[in-house]
Design a protein around this nucleic acid. Structure first.
Lengths: 205, 205
DNA sequence: TATAATATATGACACCGTGTCACTTGTCAA
DNA sequence: TTGACAAGTGACACGGTGTCATATATTATA
């Protein structure tokens, strides 16, 4: 987490710094991004950067988690709109993310995050479903989910269904961002895989 | 790919270098591994390293792909033993990888690879199923798979089933290596998720 | 208001890692 | 023996990180 000093900063200065950092992390993946570029863009001294953040990672994960938090909130409301149908909800989410990420910077930021997926980054992306099946946040999501249609006997299995759906969705994002798939193709593939998940990979006996 | 010079090397020298590199990449993830350590361990000059490899990544992905190639071959034979049942095969593979990776070095090497999963690393891991559903390698695997029991209408869907199973398996590996799960817990979870995939996440109508 | 105490800002610097290059050493064919 | 080419070498330039002594600003206190 950023240091207190960062949060004490006057709004506009903090904003400038965030914008500068986002720009750098959109330009290059974490390992290639440089603090020199960030401080130059934000017009602050190198030493100041270290007043605000522990290091590069600290700044990076602060930004990433900020972004993800917004997405998570949006997912919750989409899940409600879809009456707790997790696969329909995640399909809508996928669709929206592909066609509605507006800002070029934001898009490249996500792209870099997805393509150089450290374990930590992946955890950020799936943070909504973090921890084990009995964590606080997990309960909230589990409660929202319509279990009527799910092929489960307890909440633990619901948790694993979420994990499965998330893993597959995540992989689809990575492929969309790395490959030359059009939005339409990507969404079609996503739908197909979600249907396979719904109905089962094996024939009913 | 390593340069020709590397392949011209006398066996024992090449072997030493490989061992030294593996040791370093087991010690630290790619971004933190240092060429200085490799050349020191291998007792060669820094300049020599650059005679053999383009850079650190070049050496890394050469080693990783070598390892993965062996695993892939093993997976093919396991798939045959399981009469083309992809989920049974991948479950056995998972089981074997957890309990039979013998060498401490090799184990840490994999662990680092999985935890700092760049997109390239992930692609190496799933290279067996690389390309689209009509690629040469993909056909070989698809042909091995027993489609009798699969809930599919064409080979394209088989391809996506493979993608799904792989994504879920991959995530399980990452979690096993990052978390504090015992081998038994990890395998139990893996089995549960594979069963959910087989039977479908949603109830049959 | 004056002064002390504390918080913030700064950039030079030590340190470390990368990739290069001019040079040395080895090999092998003529 | 010699020349040509392949392989080996390590000093070095460059660039990035994180630190620290010092300067400046802000706030508290008398």
């Amino acid at each position: 987490m950023p240091k207190q000093t960062f949060f004490n900063l006057p709004e506009s200065k903090r904003y400038n710094l965030i914008v500068a950092a986002e720009k750098e992390f959109a330009r290059a993946p974490l390992s290639e991004a440089s603090i020199a570029n960030i401080v130059k863009e934000a017009c602050i001294a190198r030493g100041s950067f270290y007043q605000y953040f522990e290091d590069k990672e600290d700044a990076y994960f602060f930004l990433l988690n900020q972004q993800i938090k917004e997405r998570n909130a949006r997912f919750i409301s989409i899940l409600k709109e879809n009456n707790g149908d997790i696969i329909d909800a995640i399909t809508e989410m996928y669709h929206k993310l592909l066609i509605e990420i507006p800002d070029e910077n934001e898009r490249d930021f996500f792209k870099n995050a997805l393509l150089s997926v450290t374990h930590k980054v992946e955890n950020s992306f799936t943070s909504l479903f973090e921890g084990n099946h009995s964590s606080e946040q997990m309960r909230e999501v589990t409660n929202l989910i319509n279990k009527e249609c799910l092929n489960v006997s307890d909440d633990k299995e619901v948790f694993h269904i979420i994990k499965i759906v998330t893993a597959v969705a995540f992989r689809n994002f990575v492929e969309k961002f790395s490959g030359e798939l059009s939005d339409e193709e990507a969404i079609e593939i996503f739908r197909m895989e979600m249907n396979l998940l719904k109905n089962g990979l094996y024939k009913k006996k």
